[in-house]
Write a protein that binds this DNA or RNA. Structure first.
Lengths: 106, 106
DNA sequence: CATATATGCAGGTATTTAACTGCATGTCAA
DNA sequence: TTGACATGCAGTTAAATACCTGCATATATG
């Protein structure tokens, strides 16, 4: 898994919107997703492509339609590798600040 | 808090590297952070500016130095608003897939 | 004060990117 | 088979961005 692809995919509000829509109703077609997107279909396709590259969604063709499914795994990995790490012991921000300011007075 | 600033700040590998460095050792100066960054000081300043705008770091001046401190709060909020949401009930990806494929057969 | 050090600020530029348009392909249904 | 519908693909463009260079300002120290 490529952290960078995931972070870059999440960096765009339209793509987060798409994930939101899929979270409400999984397995939507491109056409359905376009309805809530205020941009051309081709642009939505591009965004979905980036989400798929980041493995945040998977797709299945059903006839002439393409169904999109959200994949929570990369998000969880990002959480594990990035967010939990900063939580632990980093609640000491104020303590660190105070410590540095003390050092200043010497 | 602006979700978008946080996501955009996290989208760049250099900025994630900076957060990593601050996680190892909080309260570093600009000069210290530059040592591990393989780019000009002014570029590092720009990155730190984006991190500060996203409220991911706070800064304090100590004489001619500027100290940088990591702030875990926005990361936790991103987790709460984005990641936990997708975890819950979204482990049913395979179930959803199967369901859609069944619908296909009709 | 004079010098060195730490950081700030103002552009310049090449790359990336997010939108668009136009046309092509594939699938269903009459 | 033919027409309608869902999606794919290629190329264009304007904006964002991640670097850079050059110079300015502020602080510590002799």
């Amino acid at each position: 898994m490529d952290d960078d692809d995931v972070f870059k995919a999440l960096a765009d509000p339209s793509r987060r919107m798409l994930l939101d829509r899929l979270c409400e109703k999984n397995g939507q077609t491109l056409g359905q997703l376009c309805e809530s997107m205020d941009m051309k279909r081709q642009s939505v396709t591009q965004h979905l492509g980036r989400l798929e590259q980041a493995n945040l969604i998977s797709t299945v063709r059903r006839g002439r339609e393409k169904l999109h499914f959200i994949n929570p795994v990369p998000l969880y990995e990002v959480y594990e590798r990035w967010i939990r790490k900063f939580e632990e012991g980093r609640l000491s921000l104020l303590h660190d600040l105070k410590q540095q300011l003390e050092r200043n007075k010497k």
